[in-house]
Computed example of a mutant assay.
Amino acid sequence: MTASRRFIVICLLPVFSLGCEALRKSPNVRNPVVGPPPIRQSYVEVDPVGKAQYADASADAGEILTVSAESTELTEDSIVATVNAEPIIASDILAPYAKGFREAEAEMRVKAAKADQFSEEEINEAIAAQLQKIKKDLIRKDLDKHIERKLLTQALKNSMKPERLEAMEGAIDQVWQGELEKIQAKAGVSSRYELEPKLKEEQGMSLNELKDMFRRQQMAMAYLHTGVETVEKSIGRAEIVRYYEDHLDDYTLTRRARWQQIVILFSKAGGRDAALDQLRVVVDQLQSGTPFAEVAQKHSHGPRAERGGQWNWTEPGALSNDTWEQAIFNLPVGGVSDVIEDKSSFRLIRVSERDEGGTRSLTEVQDEIRDILAEEARKATTDEVIADLMKSASIETRIH
């Protein structure tokens, strides 16, 4: 394609996610024993079926060797990385984006057709090049987490006896059956045979691809579970108290109130005397028990009359008028102020809700703090485990 005929199509790819519950029970595994890393190797060319020829190259364990593959066409079976000699193929990463690719291609074809200046061959060539770029960008973005998941899965397998590993895989399959039932119910089908085409259409993935993704995620989580669980159990009262004292400002609430008003503007009522007559009608209705919001909707000239004159949470110092603020923060909840008159209006204020502020007690927030500390511990433990596995791993990437 000549430079003058090249075109760029910008498209947005939807990102899909499947929420699955974590494995209920994880085996009690010891620290990872990955074993000695294999000899460092690099592929001469991409081999779709994984039978690549190897070049004689080596590097120290813990380093990530990048092998350029920019000039090679990316296919679903292309090996994009190896982790301790186990491949990660493009489809492992790109499967969740399949529907997005189809939609992007359709959108690009529509735009190209509207341009009406390119041959079918040129359009196909340009779209293929654009999709290749998008796929490689997505792989670059997501590859690290797939490498980490592969490391965790390998460590789990290496740390367990075959019979325990088989039992754990069986437990994961049982959890998957439960998830499959939820997916079927959400899709409105009663069998996997009905689900398969619907899943392919709506998410661009086969049921087997979805199951494989689920199993990889669960095995990685299972390996992390024991270490994280131990750290979570070690969170005691001393840690909770220390966090509370260090973040006391986060648990200190400012005094605030929600309030309503009825405003009778002299200009809209036809002068002060006419406004006073209208005010008498308002007061009579309130005294007879008509709800404040209903009276405000009918008679108020204020900017929120349609909402019953309701204003949201207001803190001291937020209003420009001290008289209004005194009424809001001194009236009892549900109380209505005396008539407030200024040079342009009569006004009535009602306090609908008030929070007196103050500091939440440790008893109130200790469970919330425990959750925060547990999440921090989970992240720290995960980062530490992955860092340790990376040190002894042999990793090659073909996308950079």
Rank of each mutant, 00 (worst) to 15 (best):
E239W: 02
A220R: 00
A222H: 03
T230G: 10
M205V: 14
V241Y: 01
R242N: 13
E245S: 12
K198R: 13
M219W: 02
D173A: 14
F214V: 07
S190P: 06
R216V: 04
F214K: 06
G188H: 06
H225V: 00
E194V: 00
A238W: 02
L180W: 08
A171S: 14
D246Y: 12
I172G: 09
M221I: 13
K182S: 07
M168V: 07
V189P: 01
L207E: 04
Q203Y: 10
Q217L: 12
V231P: 09
E202M: 01
G236R: 01
S234I: 08
D173T: 15
K182F: 07
F214L: 05
Q218F: 10
M205S: 09
M219L: 14
L207T: 10
E181Y: 05
S234H: 04
M219V: 04
K186E: 10
H225E: 10
Y243G: 02
L199E: 00
E245N: 12
Q184R: 13
L224Q: 00
E245H: 06
T226K: 12
L199A: 03
L248Y: 04
L195P: 06
G188L: 04
L199G: 02
A167Y: 10
D212E: 11
G188A: 08
Y251V: 10
L210K: 13
L224V: 03
Q203K: 03
E179T: 13
R237F: 15
D173I: 15
S206L: 10
A222F: 05
G188Q: 11
P197N: 01
V228F: 04
E166Y: 07
E181T: 11
E245C: 02
E209I: 05
K233D: 01
V241Q: 06
E209V: 03
E166L: 09
E194Q: 07
A171H: 09
Q177P: 01
A185H: 13
E229C: 03
Q174H: 14
D246I: 14
R215G: 02
I172K: 09
D249S: 15
K200G: 04
Q174T: 13
V241F: 04
A238P: 08
E239C: 02
Y243F: 07
Y223K: 08
E239I: 00
L180K: 05
L210M: 14
Q184I: 10
V228I: 14
E196S: 12
Y193K: 15
Y193A: 09
D246W: 06
V231L: 12
L248N: 03
T226Y: 13
A185I: 11
A187T: 09
N208I: 11
Y243S: 01
Q177D: 11
W176N: 03
G170A: 12
A185M: 13
E245Q: 13
E169W: 11
P197A: 05
H225K: 11
Q174E: 12
D250V: 02
M168L: 09
L248M: 11
D173Y: 14
I172C: 11
M219N: 01
E169S: 14
M221Q: 15
L210G: 03
M205C: 10
D250S: 06
P197S: 04
E202G: 00
V228M: 09
Q217T: 12
A171L: 11
Q184L: 15
R192H: 15
A167F: 09
L224F: 14
V231M: 06
I172W: 07
A187K: 06
L210A: 06
S191T: 11
D212V: 11
Y223D: 07
K233M: 02
Q218I: 06
K198G: 05
G227C: 01
Q184K: 15
V231C: 08
G204V: 03
